[in-house]
Write a protein that binds this DNA or RNA. Structure first.
Lengths: 282, 282
DNA sequence: TTTAATTATGAAATAAAATTTCATTTTTTC
DNA sequence: GAAAAAATGAAATTTTATTTCATAATTAAA
């Protein structure tokens, strides 16, 4: 774990003086990696041995070792932070920021996912009689993408981005059907209703949404995808990308579960496209 | 610059003894960050002052500072590499691999993008009478997503994932129209044709594709998105995500170019969705 | 409350690590 | 092959970190 997060986590396990040290470090970690133990002690208004004890409480060998960990955390932590686009950014700058925020979101999303739930979802999907993907707005394209992927697996799969079709489909679902409902906010009324309708009709409902949303409450399995959207620009950005990555994970899990013969089949599907393409010369 | 690269670069500028130090470090940098100057000197069979001089030649303040730099380089280098999914991976493992490969691809894609081309594209888009997005297969969802985004800007925007509609639309295009053609391989015959049709009819054609593909040759502006697809699984994965990130970049560029009054408008579009959602309680 | 036990803290001493100084060796230049 | 320049390491010095131990603060028990 990142040592900065660890400090933040263990803040209440620390003694009064040690907490002072922690606060100084959290306030300006980049300064600390260039400070001696004496300088840091002075900064925090405590003694040098206290700093040393603080370092050991965080499972480092001592102050120099602690600084090493800190340096590594900083190196890791800085590149992919959610940096907000600014009015006066050049193309170079906003491009970098958007790509970096996207990467940061993927990192966050991965942490929020639970491999157990993924396993259960893959289980359910491989057993399914029929798979439906529902989404609206930006999540509609994720549902669309999912259909593209699962279609290759030669299983009955549909996707709807229309409220009425979703409702009808949900009402007609039965035991053995899997309904995947995708919504970042998890608060879109019609989608939450569709989820509960599908569940009432014995379908297994998998929700791809943020933790603790109304949608999550209606689902048999919740795949939590937490990202921090930059709401300044009023457009869904990172959320749909994290959701797509999760679709990749599910699709991959599916093919792995089905074994290697099945993957030869996928190759055939792909090869069937060849005649529609210009040949590569390399 | 990464200090390990720097050492490798400056290897021939170093004296004989200093080179010995460099070699020991390059051979096992992760050991070195836990060694004292004495230990490293012994390892390299030279004296401690030589190590110290070596550190300063690399523009660090001394040995401890050098170790800090080294630690940061190590932390940066490893995280996001393209790791391939393996037959026997657990859910945890393949999830991590897919997310990490996706992040690595985004990193790669960003490097392949040219901010000048982005600027020109944003220019053209803000001036456009009509914007069309064309894609097939996995790229269709990118086109779909782009429509969702640009639709909010209150400009005439269409998207087609149907070959015939794309052709008809391309033939009807005229000066001032912008056609964005999306294809990772850039080898899909019908799309390449559509691009050249649109161009013949005086539309500005922007290609979102890999460097040097047949599609790229037909475009007025090429936005190169190079990623390394893991073709083992026969499904497009990273490419479409990188393309989506690029759509975000273009959309962001568009809103920035249009100024702050325009962004208030976006807020209204978003607010209009409120009544369809469950309220947040926090 | 008061007292005993525990825990936290810092001053001083010690130990470890890094740096500087300077004499010696090696290499280069003429 | 001698003089100058550069490289190197032994030893001394300085800086930095750690340990020890006495004292202070906090908590638990009476």
């Amino acid at each position: 774990m990142n040592i900065l997060e660890k400090i933040a986590n263990e803040l209440d396990m620390l003694s009064k003086s040690e907490r002072k040290v922690a606060e100084v470090i959290l306030a300006s970690p980049s300064t600390v990696i260039h400070s001696s133990i004496a300088a840091l002690a002075k900064q925090a208004n405590i003694s040098e041995p206290t700093v040393n004890r603080f370092c050991r409480r965080l499972d480092t060998k001592g102050y120099p070792d602690f600084k090493l960990h800190l340096a590594q955390s900083l190196a890791n932590g800085t590149p992919y932070v959610n940096r907000h686009v600014d009015e006066n950014d050049t193309a170079d700058e906003y491009t970098a920021k958007i790509f970096e925020s996207t990467m940061a979101s993927l990192e966050l999303a991965r942490k929020s996912l639970n491999s157990n739930d993924i396993n259960r979802s893959v289980d359910v999907l491989t057993q399914a009689n029929k798979i439906s993907f529902f989404g609206l707005g930006a999540s509609a394209i994720v549902a669309h993408d999912a259909q593209n992927k699962f279609f290759r697996f030669n299983v009955p799969v549909v996707y709807f981005d229309d409220i009425l079709m979703q409702r009808m489909s949900a009402i007609n679902s039965r035991q053995g059907d899997v309904v995947i409902v995708i919504s970042h906010t998890g608060r879109t009324k019609s989608l939450v209703e569709v989820a509960s309708l599908a569940k009432e009709n014995d379908a297994t409902v998998i929700g791809i949404t943020s933790t603790g949303t109304p949608l999550a409450k209606e689902c048999s399995i919740v795949l939590s995808v937490d990202v921090s959207e930059d709401t300044d620009l009023y457009m869904p950005m990172s959320s749909r990308i994290a959701q797509l990555a999760l679709i990749d994970v599910l699709a991959t899990g599916f093919t792995l579960r089905r074994g290697s013969k099945f993957r030869d089949n996928l190759k055939k599907v792909k090869d069937s496209l060849r005649s529609s393409r210009f040949e590569r010369k390399d």
